[in-house]
Computed example of a mutant assay.
Amino acid sequence: MKWVFVLLFLASAVYVHRRGRVRHRLGRQLLDHSTFMAPLNVLMYAFSRVPTTPFIDDPARHFPELEPLREQWPQIRAEALRLREMQQIKAADGYTDVGFNSFFRRGWKRFYLKWYDEAHPSAAELCPQTTALLRRIPSVKAAMFTELPPGSELRPHRDPYAGSLRLHLGLDTPNDDGCFIEVDGQRYSWRDGQWTMFDETYIHSARNDTQGNRVILFCDVERPLRFAPVRALNRFVARHLIAAGASPNQEGDRTGGINRLFKYFYAVRLRAKALRERNQSLYYGLKYASVALAVAFIVWV
C-alpha cells in the first residue's frame, strides 16, 4: 500500500510538471511548492466543474455571483485610489507575507481586503464599500488591491494549490499592451473596468513596461467542484492551511500562523543564500541531498 501512495505521488508530480506549455527547469520544479501539493492539485483538476485551461473565458458565465464586482468597479476603484494616495498599498512591514515576499523586491505592492476569513479591520475601516460587497460573495475567499508600478515585474512562478481560480479586475491601469500578464505563454493586458480569470497553478508572470501605474482588484475564487466530499476537502485545506498565510496591512490585523513563523525560516534562508554565494556546489549538493533524504524517509517509514 505504501508503494501505491509513492507511485501516485510521483505520477501526480510528473503531471503537474508537464502540465501546460511553459515549464520550470526540472531542478526548480523538484523544490517547488506545487510538487508537494501535486496529489491534491490533480484531484482538484479531475473534479473541476470549470475548464482547466490557463484562462477561463467569460467568468460571468461560470460565476454569475461575481457580476456585481464588474458593475460596481468605479466605486471599488475610488477606494483603491484613495488607499494609494494614503500610501497604504505597500509591501509588507517585515517578514509577514511568505506567499508574496519575493514579489516586493521587484516593485509589487498590495493591500489585503480579506484572506480566507472576514475582512481585516483595516480594510473594513478604509474600504467599507468594497468589503461590504465582497461579504455578499462567499465564493471570493481572498481579495486585495495590488499595484504594479512602472518598470516592475513578477518573474515566472506558479501558485502551489489549485483549490481556487484567480480573478483580476482592472481599476486604474495604463490601458496599454506594455502592461500585461502571461499565463502558460498566453498574454493578457489589463484595461480599466475589464476582468480576466485564470488558473494560477499554470506558470505565469507579469510586467509593466509602460510609464503608467497599474492597480487591480485581485481575488481568489473558490474552484467549483463535483461531489460534496471533494468540495469539503478543498474547504478543509483552505481553512486550515491556506488561511494560515494571512498577512496584516496594519497593526491589529490578523497574522496567520505560517507568517508568524516566517521570520525564523527567512533567517535560515538568508544563511542559505550566503552559502550559495560562497560555494554553489556545496549549496546545491546539500539542497538536493535534503530532498533525497525526505523521499527516502517517506519510502522507508
Rank of each mutant, 00 (worst) to 15 (best):
G170A: 06
M144K: 10
V183Q: 05
P149L: 12
W195K: 07
Q211C: 06
T196E: 12
R23T: 06
V183I: 08
R82N: 14
C179F: 10
L66A: 05
F297Q: 11
R269F: 12
D209T: 10
R155A: 09
F111I: 02
Y45W: 15
E118L: 14
I56N: 03
L270N: 09
V291P: 02
A38M: 06
F145H: 02
F5W: 11
Q87Y: 08
L126A: 14
N208F: 08
K287F: 09
Y15P: 02
Q280D: 14
P128Y: 06
K287P: 01
Y202K: 08
F63R: 04
Y288C: 04
L134P: 00
D184K: 03
P68E: 03
E147H: 13
G163Y: 00
R276P: 04
H120I: 00
R61L: 13
R23Q: 13
F218Y: 15
K114H: 01
R82D: 15
L154W: 05
I181Y: 04
L293I: 15
I56L: 15
R260D: 02
L286T: 09
A13Q: 13
D57R: 14
R136N: 11
S205Q: 11
S247D: 06
G170I: 06
A272W: 13
F180D: 00
I242K: 01
R106H: 11
